[in-house]
Computed example of a mutant assay.
Amino acid sequence: MNLLSRLPSWIGHHVAAVRVVLVLTVLLGLVYPLGMTALAHLPGLREQAQGSELAGHGSKLIGQSFLDDKGDPIRSYFQPRPSNAGDGYDASASAAGNLGPESTVDVLPLKGRPDSGKQSLLTQVCARSKAVGELEHVDGARPYCASDGVGAVLGVFRDGGTTGRATRVVSLNQACPARPFLSSYEGVTVECAEPGTDYGKAVVTPVRGDAPAHPKVPADAVTASGSGLDPQISPAYARLQTPRVARERGTSEQAVRALVEKYTSGRGLGVLGEPAVNVVELNAALDHIHPMTTKGA
C-alpha cells in the first residue's frame, strides 16, 4: 500500500502542491530561461539580444544627443530629433511630451522667476524650427510661428464674448516689452502680453502667417518621437544637415551623402512606415571614415 494513502488527505494535497512548485520552478526558472538564452545566441539574433552595441557609441537602437558642454549642437555631427526622455534620450525615462495640437498658448514666466513659465507645444516647435534654420542656414519659418520663434497666437476680446467686434487684441506668447508679430488685427492695435495676467476671456486665435506650406525644416526636426529614444531621422532631415557636416569634416557632400544612403533603412515589409536614417550608426561611421582631430561645436 502506498504510504501517501495512509496519510490524512490534507497532507497528500500539500505534497502534490510541493511537487507542482518544484516542477514549475525547474521548467520556468531554469529550462525556459536557459532555452531563451540559447535561442538568442543563434546567428541573426545574437546582435539584438546583446543590445545591438555599437563600439564607443552605445546602442544603435537608442538615440543619443550630440551636444557640447554648453548644450549646443556639435556641428560636425548629424543631429537627432528632439527627445522628451529625461534630459534627452535617457533610456530609464522613456516618455513623450503629452502635449497635443490644442497646446498653443504659453504660460509666460514671471519677472525674476524664469522657471515659472511653460512653453506650449506650438512654441516648442517654432523655437526648434528657428534654431535648426539658423544652424543649417535655411529659412526656419513655418505656419503659425512668429519670427522670434514663438507661437503666433492672438487673444482677441470681442464685445459679444466669442463673437462681435474686436475691442482688444493681445499677442499671448510674446511677453512685454516684446514687439508683437502683428501691429494690428481687425483694426485694433495688438498688445504684448503681461506675464501673470488672466486672458481667459479672450478668443484664442492662431495666425498662420505667410510661411510656406512645406517648410525647409522637416517635421521630425521639431517634434519628438513617442518613446523619446528613436535613433532615426527622416532622409529629408539628413539631406538638410549634409552640407554642414561635410563642411565641418573637410570632406565632400557626395561622400557624406553616400554614408547617409548606406545607413538609410527602407519601409518595413516594403509598405510599412517611412524610410529612416540611423543617426547613431551614421555618426559612428563618420568618426571612423572622416575623423575629426577635435570635436568642437
Rank of each mutant, 00 (worst) to 15 (best):
A178V: 03
S129P: 06
A175V: 05
S116R: 03
R179S: 15
S120C: 14
K130C: 00
A127E: 13
P177M: 14
V138F: 10
R128F: 09
F157Q: 08
T123Q: 07
G140C: 11
T167V: 15
V132H: 03
G161R: 07
C145D: 01
P143N: 14
A175Q: 07
G160D: 04
L122R: 14
S129R: 03
P143Q: 14
A166S: 13
Q174A: 10
V132M: 07
N173P: 05
G133N: 08
A127C: 03
E136T: 09
G164E: 14
R128N: 15
A127L: 11
S129I: 01
L135C: 08
P143G: 13
V153R: 01
P180S: 10
D148N: 15
C176Q: 14
F157A: 07
L172I: 11
C126W: 04
R113P: 04
A152P: 05
T167D: 08
G112D: 10
L172F: 05
Y144F: 14
G149T: 09
E134I: 00
A166G: 02
A127V: 08
V125F: 01
T123R: 04
L154V: 08
E136Q: 15
V156A: 02
A152D: 08
A175G: 10
T123E: 06
V169I: 10
R128V: 10
N173M: 08
D139Q: 08
N173T: 07
L154R: 00
C145S: 02
P180Q: 11
G149D: 06
F157C: 00
A178C: 09
S120H: 14
G151Q: 04
K111L: 14
P180R: 05
K118A: 15
R165W: 01
R113S: 11
G161Q: 07
G133K: 04
Y144S: 05
A175W: 08
H137F: 03
G164Q: 13
R179C: 03
K118F: 12
E134W: 01
P177Y: 08
E134K: 06
S120F: 11
S120K: 04
D148A: 06
P143M: 12
V125W: 00
E136W: 04
G164T: 04
G149W: 09
A175C: 13
E136F: 08
S116H: 10
G160W: 05
Q124N: 15
H137G: 09
L110K: 12
R128G: 09
R128H: 13
T123P: 04
V138S: 09
A141M: 02
R142A: 12
K130Y: 11
S116N: 11
G155W: 03
E136R: 09
C126V: 05
G140Y: 03
A141F: 06
D148T: 13
Q119H: 11
G133T: 02
G151E: 12
R158C: 02
K118I: 11
V132G: 05
C176R: 10
G161E: 13
Q124E: 15
V156P: 04
V125I: 15
D159A: 11
R179L: 12
V125E: 07
Q119C: 04
E136C: 13
G112P: 06
C145Q: 00
E134G: 00
D159I: 10
H137M: 09
V150P: 00
T123N: 09
V138W: 12
T163N: 14
R168K: 15
D139F: 11
C126K: 01
A146H: 01
V169K: 06
L135P: 01
D139C: 11
L154T: 02
V150C: 01
G164D: 11
T163M: 10
R158G: 02
